[in-house]
Structure formats: structure tokens, C-alpha cells
């Protein structure tokens, strides 16, 4: 029986929802094809996440627990992934497309001599491999890609699949892992974290994103206020992360994060294709821009043509009223 394996990423001590989305999808693929659906979690406290994982249908959870995994480092992660992969021998190994995944996916494929398709919007099994849809050309179009190999790695954009609970009591396999200091190829000197309490954009139900139109502290304050009223995460265009106005982790787009919240409010963002590439899958898009010809209006469900400094205060006030 073949195995479909899903990598479960942990971030800031929490299960990454995007991994569980992938697991949900793999579970349905496994059910349909008679494969076994397994998961692997690699973390300093890996075993504490088993409960959360088995809720989404993994029948076996491979647990690699070692203090070395407290922070992301590619050398140990790659070693652990290679080891699990060699022993489980999955036909498909699926990942959520996070920066952590991107850091090791190519290397893992090279190490395990596997075929790999990165950053897909959806994938399914075909005879002898995997078939996927990928956004390309700055997400202007999609392509269909096939990987034919005994082992295929695939990483999936967040928000591509819905969470789907299907409780299994998973068998837990503890994987022996140790790593010698001498094996470490690089040194982690420091972690520069974004301010602690920001909402993970990949998981946010609502996002307020600021662009170059947000020019000063007053503008930033309006963005923060709107975000707090909506309990939304704050995102930004490259124009504002580049100039240091917002933390680079908040960048949305081709270079930054791909998000798909229920509500996306683009404030003072022109709508360059590389930005749109990261947010076009949001359910409802609102754009506030003073230029009626700004391309962002082509993807917005609700476009407000106007100066954000004049539009936001009554907008916020009205939402406050609605929210009671």
C-alpha cells in the first residue's frame, strides 16, 4: 500500500493551519486511492501536537522531537525529513508552502532523488505521479504540471483547501534523531522577530493591507484602528515593507506571503500584478484608492474612490456601529 505523507509545520508553538489544510486534502486523496495517510511533525515539542494532527485523519504520525528544532535551521530539518522519507518511503510527500518549507524543499528532492512541484494551488494523483495546477507569470495564469516519479514532493499555497476534520486514533512513531554540533553547517546567530502579537496572515480571517498611499503616522494609526475593529491582521505592499514602514514579514504578494482571507481591504495600494498575485484569492476584496484608474479596482468587489485619510474615519466609525 502506498503512503501519502504530510509535513506538519509548527510556528510560534502552534500547528500551522495551512499544514492541516494540506493534511485534510491528503486524507481525501488517500481515502479515494486506498493509500495510507500519514503525517510527520518535527519540533522541539513535537509529541504535544499529535492530538491536533490526528483530528485531521492521519493514521500514523511520525514524531521527530529534539531541542535543536526550537528554531528553524535547514541542516537539521533536512536531515530529519530525509530520514523520515527514507523510512516511510511515501509516494507523495506534501507540504504547506511556508518559508520554512521553501528553505528545504529543493534540497530534499535532490537528496531523495524525488520529483518536486512547488507552490501549487491544487493537486491530485495520477497514474505514476501527481498532477497539479500552479499559478505562473506573476499569477496572471495557471499551468498544469505533471510529475512522474516514484516519489513526488509537492508544496501547496495556503488557503487552497478547506480544513476537514476526520478523527483517527493515530499510531505514533517516534523517530530517533540526534545531531552532532559538527554536522551543523551554519550557525543561527540571532532571531529578529516581528512584534509578538501580530496575527498570522496566512490564517487571518480578515486583513487590512497598507500601501504607499499610507504616508505617515496618522495613516498608520488609521490602519491599526481599522484592523483592530475588524480583528484583522495587518499586511503591506512592498512599497511600505521596503521603506521600513512595516515589518517585512507583513509583505503580501509574489515575493511575500500568499493570503486568502474572507475579507481583504487594500488601502492606498495601486494593485501591481506582483501584489495581486498574493491576494487575489481573498473572498471579498475592498480597495480604497484615490486614483479611479488604479488597477486594484479590477480585482476589488467594492472599490472606494477617495482619499484614504477622508474615507477611513467614517468607514471605521460605521463598522464600529455595525459591530455594536
Amino acid at each position: 500500500m502506498s503512503t501519502i505523507l504530510t509535513y506538519i509545520a509548527i510556528s510560534d508553538g502552534k500547528l500551522k493551519r495551512s499544514s492541516l489544510e494540506v493534511l485534510s486534502h491528503c486524507k481525501s486523496l488517500a481515502d479515494a486511492s486506498g493509500a495510507s495517510c500519514e503525517a510527520v511533525v518535527i519540533d522541539a515539542n513535537a509529541s504535544s501536537f499529535v492530538d491536533g494532527i490526528q483530528k485531521y485523519g492521519a493514521s500514523k504520525v511520525h514524531v521527530v522531537e529534539d531541542p535543536i528544532f526550537k528554531n528553524h535551521m535547514n541542516t537539521p530539518l533536512l536531515k530529519a525529513l530525509s530520514k523520515v522519507m527514507a523510512s516511510v518511503n511515501p509516494s507523495v510527500f506534501a507540504f504547506a508552502s511556508t518559508e520554512g518549507t521553501k528553505d528545504v524543499l529543493g534540497a530534499l528532492a535532490a537528496n531523495q532523488n524525488a520529483a518536486v512541484i512547488a507552490d501549487v494551488a491544487s493537486f491530485e494523483l495520477i497514474d505514476g505521479g501527481v498532477k497539479a495546477k500552479r499559478p505562473v507569470m506573476a499569477a496572471k495564469i495557471m499551468n498544469n504540471t505533471e510529475a512522474k516519479s516514484e516519489k513526488v514532493l509537492v508544496s501547496v499555497r495556503s488557503g487552497s483547501y478547506d480544513l476537514n476534520e476526520s478523527l483517527e486514533s493515530a499510531e505514533v512513531v517516534n523517530v530517533d534523531f540526534s545531531m552532532d554540533d559538527s554536522e551543523m553547517k551554519s550557525t543561527l546567530r540571532e532571531i529578529i522577530s516581528a512584534s509578538g502579537d501580530t496575527i498570522d496572515l496566512n490564517e487571518a480571517e480578515a486583513i487590512v493591507a497598507a500601501g504607499r498611499g499610507v504616508k505617515d503616522e496618522e495613516g498608520k494609526a488609521l490602519i491599526s484602528e481599522l484592523a483592530s475593529v475588524l480583528k484583522a491582521g495587518i499586511g503591506a505592499s512592498r512599497a511600505l515593507t521596503e521603506s521600513g514602514v512595516y515589518d517585512p514579514s507583513l509583505q503580501i504578494g509574489q515575493t511575500g506571503k500568499v493570503v486568502s482571507p474572507q475579507l481583504y481591504i487594500a488601502v492606498g495600494i495601486s494593485g501591481a500584478i506582483q501584489h495581486v498575485a498574493g491576494m487575489a484569492n481573498s473572498k471579498v476584496i475592498v480597495a480604497i484608492n484615490k486614483d479611479p484608474d488604479a488597477p486594484i479596482f479590477e480585482v476589488a468587489d467594492y472599490g472606494i474612490v477617495g482619499d484614504l485619510y477622508k474615507v477611513l474615519p467614517p468607514f471605521i466609525e460605521e463598522i464600529k456601529k455595525i459591530k455594536g
Partner: peptide, 23 residues
């Protein structure tokens, strides 16, 4: 190992409405 078999348009987003006027 991987092969692009075809290209296709993205599912189009229904262009929404623009609201112009008094802010």
C-alpha cells in the same frame, strides 16, 4: 521529472462596483 502539460486562464474574478462621490 516534471512537465508543464498545458496553460489555462485563471478563474475570472467578477469585477465589482466602484463607489465614487463624497468620501
Amino acid at each position: 521529472d516534471t512537465k508543464v502539460t498545458s496553460y489555462e486562464e485563471k478563474p475570472a474574478r467578477q469585477a465589482g462596483k466602484k463607489y465614487e462621490g463624497e468620501a
